[in-house]
């Protein structure tokens, strides 16, 4: 249970960070994110079924995620600049359905799902037992998380992206290519979605239900605050521990509590602390 919480916590963090990156630049939620993860995971599944090897499959999935992210920015987010945030939610919800349909249609007989390979060995760290697929999922997720957080924190590109997220007009005044950096943020969000989906596929096999886990990761995003980056890890862990332990203690009274725990957390956070632990509060002026 502890192991499950740790692995799920990291996976949720990766998936939730994708929501946050988009929120920082576009000030709204990208509801197509779950389907990016799903499409990428299926791309990896199909690729590995064709015998391309795991690393090539992961590369293909990352490219697809990154590409969908950029296309979304160009096709949906940029035309909606200046419209209320609700418009972007509705439009990406449409893309959510579109991508799901494309995934069902394109994968054909693979839609029922499958495993991304066998990582049979069992590892023990103290009393906690990790299976090989857990380790693989953790590795992919940590690489994705480290890469994106590292870029944001330590490189000049990261500074530029933070500047654009903070104040696009000011950033443009300093000569930063705001459009390209915004698109890049969406691309990174797509990449995170893809790698998160891939890690999920490694852990539990690729199945049509992957996107529902990504929707739950939205709760982690809210817990951390929608515009925080490193704080997301706290959100992910709080969510996964609540889910696992809540299910453990309550499943006699509320069967299947783990399925809705994320949404209950989401509702509670929204009511008590809408800006999360690390988010900045918005002050509105006319």
């Amino acid at each position: 249970m502890v192991k499950e919480s740790i692995v799920m916590g990291v996976l949720y963090s990766v998936l939730a960070l994708g929501f946050n990156l988009v929120y920082r630049v576009s000030k709204s939620i990208n509801l197509a994110h779950p389907e990016i993860a799903l499409v990428a995971a299926y791309a990896a599944l199909v690729a590995s079924m064709q015998g391309l090897g795991f690393f090539l499959a992961a590369l293909i999935a990352s490219f697809i995620g990154f590409g969908i992210g950029i296309l979304l920015e160009r096709g949906v987010a940029r035309p909606l600049l200046g419209r209320p945030p609700v418009a972007l939610i509705a439009a990406t919800l449409g893309v959510f359905y579109l991508l799901r349909g494309v995934a069902i249609e394109a994968t054909g007989s693979y839609w029922s799902g499958g495993s991304l390979g066998d990582f049979g060995t069992v590892y023990r760290i103290g009393a906690v037992v990790f299976t090989g697929s857990d380790i693989a999922a953790l590795a992919v997720a940590l690489v994705a998380l480290g890469l994106v957080i590292g870029i944001h924190r330590f490189t000049r590109l990261g500074v530029a992206m933070r500047a654009v997220a903070e104040n696009p007009y000011g950033a443009a005044g300093y000569g930063l290519p705001v459009r390209r950096l915004t698109a890049l943020s969406w691309g990174f969000a797509g990449l995170l979605g893809a790698l998160g989906g891939l890690a999920f596929g490694l852990k539990a096999g690729v199945s049509p239900g992957i996107d529902s886990y990504v929707l739950k990761a939205l709760a982690a995003s809210l817990l951390a605050g929608l515009d925080s980056i490193a704080g997301i890890v706290v959100g992910g862990f709080v969510l996964s521990f609540t889910e696992q332990f809540g299910d453990y203690f309550l499943h006699n009274y509320l069967p299947g509590f783990g399925e809705v725990a994320a949404f209950i957390v989401m509702l509670v956070v929204l009511l008590l602390k809408p800006y999360g632990f690390f988010g900045t509060e918005r002050i509105e002026r006319l």
Binding site: A91, G94, Y97, L98, R100
Partner: peptide, 8 residues
Amino acid sequence: MVLGGLIA
């Protein structure tokens, strides 16, 4: 696909 495309 049709529904999602229409919404978007």
